[in-house]
């Protein structure tokens, strides 16, 4: 969810820059401002979000395995 929402956020931020183009062709959208540090932030944020999802999935899988084992022990 986080990955998608941050992606949407960045996409939206370029839309506003696009709409403002009048006389000068505005190329520097948000991701290129501030020495492009936002690109680094996005990269790290996305990779961390991926890792987080990975951890959550392992957690869920373990939940399922524990349930199965508990059921097996009962029968």
């Amino acid at each position: 969810m986080k990955k998608i929402s941050s992606l949407v956020l960045f996409l939206l931020s370029t839309v506003t820059a696009f709409g403002q183009s009048g006389q000068a062709i505005e190329m520097a959208d948000t991701l290129r401002r501030d020495g492009k540090i936002w690109v680094v932030v996005a990269t790290i944020a996305v990779s961390f979000a991926g890792l987080a999802i990975y951890l959550i999935r392992i957690d869920r899988k373990l939940n399922r395995l524990e349930r199965v084992q508990k059921d097996n022990a009962r029968h």
Partner: peptide, 9 residues
């Protein structure tokens, strides 16, 4: 996640 943003910006 918050520290990635605050930490870099």
């Amino acid at each position: 996640f918050s520290s990635i943003f605050t930490g870099l910006l």
